[in-house]
C-alpha cells in the first residue's frame, strides 16, 4: 500500500479493562464510529502511528510523481500529455492534503520532508521500480492506482477526522486515474504487435510489485491488530490483495493480456482466485534501499528541495519586507 508495515509502538493490543480511563473512553469513541479530531485526547501511540502512516502516504504521493513524470515529456499525443500532467499534478495535491492532515498532529511538513530525505521515513516500495516504456504509464494507472484505491476507499471511514476528510477528497479526485491507465492499456492491447508486446511486458514487470504494495501477510501482526482496533487500518493486507487480484484478472482477460502467474486459478470454494505470492525477499531489499530506483528517486527529491531553498527563502524574505513596509506606512499615517 502507499503506507506499508507501519509500526504502532504496541507489543499487544490492550483489552478495554486493561486501559486507563482516558484510553478506554477514546477506544469507545472509536468503536462507536466517532471521528477523533486534532484537539481531542488521544493515546500517544495513536498520534505517533498516524504521523508515520499519513507521512508515509504523503511521501508516496510525492515520490510517486517521479516515475510517471518521467513520461510527461514523451507522451505520444497532446491529449495524453495533458491527461498525464493533470494526473501527476493531482498526486502533488494529494501529497499536500496528506501533509496538512499530518500537520494537525503536531509535526511540520518540513520536518516530515527532512525525515524522508534522511531515510528515516519510507514511501511505498512500488515507486522504486522504473517506468521503461509508455505502457508502464498505463500499467501504473491500471495496477498501481487500482491497488491504491483498494486501500483508500475504506480509509475514508478511518477514525482520525483530518485523515478521513483528506481520503474523501483524494478518492473523489482519483476516480479518473485508474480509468486513464486502463484506457492506455486498451489502446495498446488493440494496437500494433509492438504495442501489444509493450503492454504485456509492462504487466509482466508490474504485476508482482503491485501485489507487494499491500505488504506481507499481517494476519499475525500486533501492529496491524492495533491499527485495526484504532480504525486507522480497515482491512488486512491479505484481504485487500485478494480483492485486488479478483478484480484485476478479468480486466487482464478483457485486454487479452496474460497475468504472469502459472499458478493462477479460480477457486470456486472461496469464490476468488488462488495466486502466487510475490518474492518477499525482493520486497525487503527494495525497502532496504536496493530497488532499481531508490537512489535516483531520493536524489531527485533532494535536489528539488536543496536547489529550491533560495526560492522559498526569497519569497519569505519578501513577505516580511512587505509586511514591515505596510506597518511603517500605517504608522506614518497615524
Amino acid at each position: 500500500m502507499y503506507a506499508q508495515m507501519v509500526k504502532t509502538d504496541a507489543d499487544k493490543v490492550k483489552a478495554l479493562q486493561e486501559m486507563t480511563p482516558e484510553e478506554r473512553a477514546f477506544q469507545e469513541r472509536v468503536d462507536r464510529g466517532e471521528k477523533i479530531e486534532p484537539k481531542d485526547w488521544m493515546p500517544e501511540g495513536y498520534r505517533r502511528t498516524l504521523i508515520r502512516q499519513i507521512g508515509q502516504h504523503a511521501h508516496s504521493e510525492i515520490v510517486g510523481q517521479l516515475p510517471e513524470g518521467n513520461w510527461i515529456t514523451r507522451a505520444p499525443t497532446l491529449e495524453r500529455k495533458a491527461i498525464l500532467l493533470a494526473k501527476v499534478q493531482d498526486e502533488a495535491g494529494h501529497g499536500l492534503y496528506l501533509y496538512c492532515a499530518a500537520e494537525t498532529l503536531g509535526v511540520t511538513r518540513d520536518e516530515l520532508t527532512e525525515r524522508l530525505l534522511s531515510g528515516r521515513m519510507k514511501y511505498s516500495s512500488i515507486f522504486n521500480y522504473p517506468t521503461l516504456t509508455w505502457a508502464d504509464i498505463g500499467a501504473v494507472g491500471w495496477l498501481v492506482d487500482g491497488a491504491a484505491i483498494m486501500n483508500q476507499v475504506p480509509l475514508q471511514r478511518t477514525s482520525f477526522g483530518p485523515y478521513s476528510r483528506a481520503m474523501i477528497r483524494i478518492c473523489k479526485e482519483e476516480s479518473f486515474h485508474q480509468r486513464q491507465g486502463f484506457d492506455i492499456m486498451m489502446k495498446l492491447a488493440r494496437g500494433t504487435e509492438a504495442q501489444k508486446r509493450m503492454a504485456q511486458d509492462a504487466l509482466d514487470r508490474f504485476w508482482y510489485p503491485s501485489l507487494m504494495m499491500f505488504g506481507p501477510s499481517d494476519k499475525d501482526s500486533v501492529h496491524s491488530a492495533q491499527s485495526m482496533s484504532w480504525k486507522i487500518k480497515i482491512n488486512t493486507n491479505d484481504e485487500l490483495r485478494q480483492k485486488f487480484v479478483d478484480q484485476t484478472v478479468p480486466q487482464a482477460e478483457y485486454l487479452g493480456l496474460t497475468i504472469p502467474d502459472p499458478e493462477l486459478t479460480w477457486n470456486e470454494a472461496k469464490g476468488g482466485y488462488d495466486f502466487s505470492q510475490p518474492d518477499w525477499s525482493e520486497f525487503f531489499e527494495v525497502l532496504a534501499g536496493n530497488g532499481p530506483c531508490n537512489a535516483d528517486r531520493m536524489e531527485a527529491r533532494t535536489r528539488a528541495w536543496e536547489e529550491g531553498a533560495w526560492f522559498r527563502d526569497g519569497l519569505m524574505a519578501h513577505a516580511k519586507k512587505a509586511a514591515a513596509r505596510r506597518a511603517a506606512a500605517r504608522h506614518a499615517a497615524e
Partner: peptide
C-alpha cells in the same frame, strides 16, 4: 512540464502544472 515533480515547493509544483496544462490546451 519538465518541472513536474521537481519544483522547489509543492504549491509551486501544482501551480506550474496548471500553467503547462493551459498552454497545452491552447496548443490544441
Amino acid at each position: 512540464s519538465e518541472w513536474c515533480g521537481h519544483a522547489p515547493v509543492l504549491e509551486e509544483d501544482i501551480a506550474l502544472a496548471n500553467t503547462a496544462l493551459d498552454l497545452i490546451g491552447q496548443t490544441q
